[in-house]
Amino acid sequence: MADVVPFPGRSGLPSSLTPDELVALIRELLDQGGRIVAREHAYTRMEEREISMRQVRHVLLRGEVIRGPEWSKYQNWYFTMRADTAGQLVTVGGAIDTDLMGQAVVVITVY
């Protein structure tokens, strides 16, 4: 049975999220033209490890959740996903966050 993690509430984000619901939410956001916002740290790690944004997107669309979702101290849903892409096992640490432009997938780190 999947874990359901409740949180105190924040506008625009679900109040609970299972791993399956996280995957569905990410896929829905990206299928509808949603934003992927990569932090500077993620870009640095991508460059060091020769991982492209296309590979990161593949992980988000086709990968499996290996950690989370967890409600973070930054008031968003944090997760870690992994997939084999272009012959390389890629792991993405990210978050579902909301701002004035709506919900976005924030890429925090890549390895």
Rank of each mutant, 00 (worst) to 15 (best):
M1S: 15
A2N: 13
D3P: 05
V4S: 15
V4K: 13
P6I: 02
G9Y: 10
G9A: 11
G9I: 08
R10P: 04
L13F: 12
P14G: 06
S16V: 04
S16G: 10
S16T: 13
L17S: 09
P19S: 06
P19K: 07
P19E: 07
D20I: 07
D20M: 09
E21L: 10
E21C: 02
L22V: 09
V23H: 01
A24Q: 14
A24D: 14
A24M: 09
L25E: 15
L25W: 08
I26Q: 04
L29T: 12
L29W: 09
L30K: 08
D31V: 01
D31C: 02
D31T: 09
Q32M: 12
G34A: 04
G34N: 05
R35S: 11
I36F: 04
A38F: 05
A38P: 06
E40R: 15
H41A: 10
A42I: 07
A42L: 04
T44P: 00
T44A: 14
R45M: 02
M46E: 01
M46F: 01
M46P: 01
M46N: 01
E48Y: 10
E50G: 03
S52W: 04
M53V: 04
M53Y: 06
R54Q: 07
Q55R: 03
V56Y: 10
R57Y: 11
R57I: 01
H58S: 10
V59Q: 06
V59H: 06
L61Y: 01
L61C: 01
R62P: 00
R62G: 02
G63W: 04
E64G: 11
E64Y: 03
V65F: 08
I66N: 04
R67M: 12
G68P: 11
G68C: 12
G68Q: 10
P69E: 10
P69C: 10
E70R: 13
W71S: 08
S72K: 09
S72D: 15
K73R: 15
K73D: 15
K73E: 14
Q75R: 15
Q75I: 05
N76R: 15
N76E: 15
W77K: 07
F79I: 05
M81N: 02
M81V: 03
M81D: 03
R82N: 02
R82S: 10
R82W: 00
A83S: 13
T85N: 00
G87L: 05
G87M: 05
G87C: 09
Q88T: 13
V90A: 04
V90P: 03
V90W: 03
T91L: 00
T91V: 11
V92Q: 08
V92R: 05
V92M: 05
V92K: 08
G94A: 10
T98W: 02
T98R: 13
D99P: 06
D99F: 05
M101V: 14
Q103W: 03
A104G: 02
V105A: 08
V106M: 08
I108T: 11
I108S: 04
I108G: 01
T109A: 11
V110H: 05
